[in-house]
Design a protein around this nucleic acid. Structure first.
Lengths: 235, 235
DNA sequence: TTATTTTTCTAGCGGTCGCTACAGAAATGA
DNA sequence: TCATTTCTGTAGCGACCGCTAGAAAAATAA
């Protein structure tokens, strides 16, 4: 079915797996040995399989994606999945981690790189319009949707924490601008940050509901008009 | 377990059920007879049971709410559920219909009663802040969340259609104001309507993530500042 | 080669899913 | 009383769920 893919010794190490004997081991018995691990080598590329799992979870969510769906998408057997990634939940956590680094980092980048809070929000909304409608992967944001209606409270809470952390990051960036005099002192930073979060989440839902990139960009542009133009906004 | 609740002949008629011998029948054999239907009477109140199902679906979504969860919440046996409501999907459709009439009608009411599009949107967002955080029922909007990550495409599409229809309703109301000269002619009605939809959906998500009514009202107030103050907004 | 280690495939575990056959219970009509 | 109609509880259907035991396969080490 899927014979031999591994040609070299390059083996990625998982980030989030924590179960017993989970995740790919690297460097078998010898101390600093670069030799192969020891037993039968894996027949699939761990990172490739992880990416396939990511796309499946992104499209259908945590609960609606069965282990059977996953093994089909990753083209491996169930025991291989459990040996390499722990269990379904560990795999999902690792997927979320990879998603955050590969697809969901544009807000962090904007916050770090743009000189003002307003600039960071504007760039974030604009890039969200692009990212959420990009061809080649599911629409919208995995963090917003993948744990909706989830029967496992820890999974639901995990993504909720990420969403609220993003809003908190916007809030502290806005506070910094207020402290620096870039934004007027009367501004409600928490509400402004929450408004930004609501826009992002709403745009993600709109993307899932069929909105085009251009339509989302128009929404983003409208949303940006809430920002004070001459420093007289008082929340 | 649940002996005899029906004391009279008052029996509500379902709206959406369509399966074979589904939904409560009314008026048994005789033409205009007001007598009881004929066989053994139902031991539960259909509307009460439907309301319990509504709350269960609202909280956990279509797929994560099992028939077992439903029969427990409604305090009836599975055969009674199937006899009275058809199947799980028919029950859900009826729940959505009742939800729309009882909890989700504030936008329609605002659109019908407020003299301007802006007034309708403002009232809708304000009432959403209240409705989405009201004690006594789950948070957020059933139409927004209950079919997320749903494996039954028809169910997912059904709620998606409702969401997009709401946006279309806002759009036509905005167009009407543009035509009447209440809003400036350069406005992008579609984008403005989509922005409103994104705000509603984002606020619903925020409510699910723990935002208070006051926090959502602050978000709504900020969102309203996009509207032209003196008729010079050009989209 | 032989022993050891690790991954692979096959098969299937106990549990839940949506749903229903069946028999008994509770009403009406004769 | 007895037949008819409808609902209710029990019990269980086939399918799928997440997950794993066990043996064979494929590598290294001796």
């Amino acid at each position: 079915m899927h014979p031999m893919v591994n040609d070299g010794a390059a083996e990625g190490q998982g980030a989030g797996a924590a179960g017993p004997r989970a995740a790919g081991n690297e460097g078998g018995g010898t101390v600093g040995g670069r030799g192969r691990p020891r037993g039968r080598p894996r027949s699939f590329d761990r990172e490739t399989a992880l990416e396939k799992a990511l796309l499946a979870f992104w499209e259908h969510g945590y609960e609606a994606t069965s282990v059977s769906d996953l093994t089909r998408a990753m083209d491996i057997g169930a025991p291989s999945l459990y040996a390499a990634f722990g269990d379904k939940r560990s795999l999902f956590e690792e997927v979320v981690s990879v998603y955050g680094a590969r697809y969901g980092s544009f807000a962090d980048r904007a916050l770090a790189e743009e000189p003002t809070a307003r600039g960071a929000v504007e760039r974030t909304l604009r890039e969200a319009a692009t990212a959420y409608t990009e061809p080649g992967h599911p629409r919208g944001c995995l963090v917003v949707h993948a744990a909706a209606n989830c029967s496992t409270p820890e999974v639901e809470q995990s993504l909720r924490d990420r969403r609220n952390a993003d809003i908190a990051a916007f809030e502290s960036r806005i506070r910094a601008d207020v402290a620096a005099g870039v934004l007027p002192p009367g501004i409600d930073a928490a509400a402004l940050a929450r408004h930004t979060g609501a826009m992002i989440q709403g745009m993600s839902q709109q993307a899932r509901d069929g909105a085009s990139r251009e339509e989302l960009e128009a929404v983003a542009e409208i949303a940006m008009s809430i920002w004070p133009r001459t420093g007289t906004h008082t929340g």
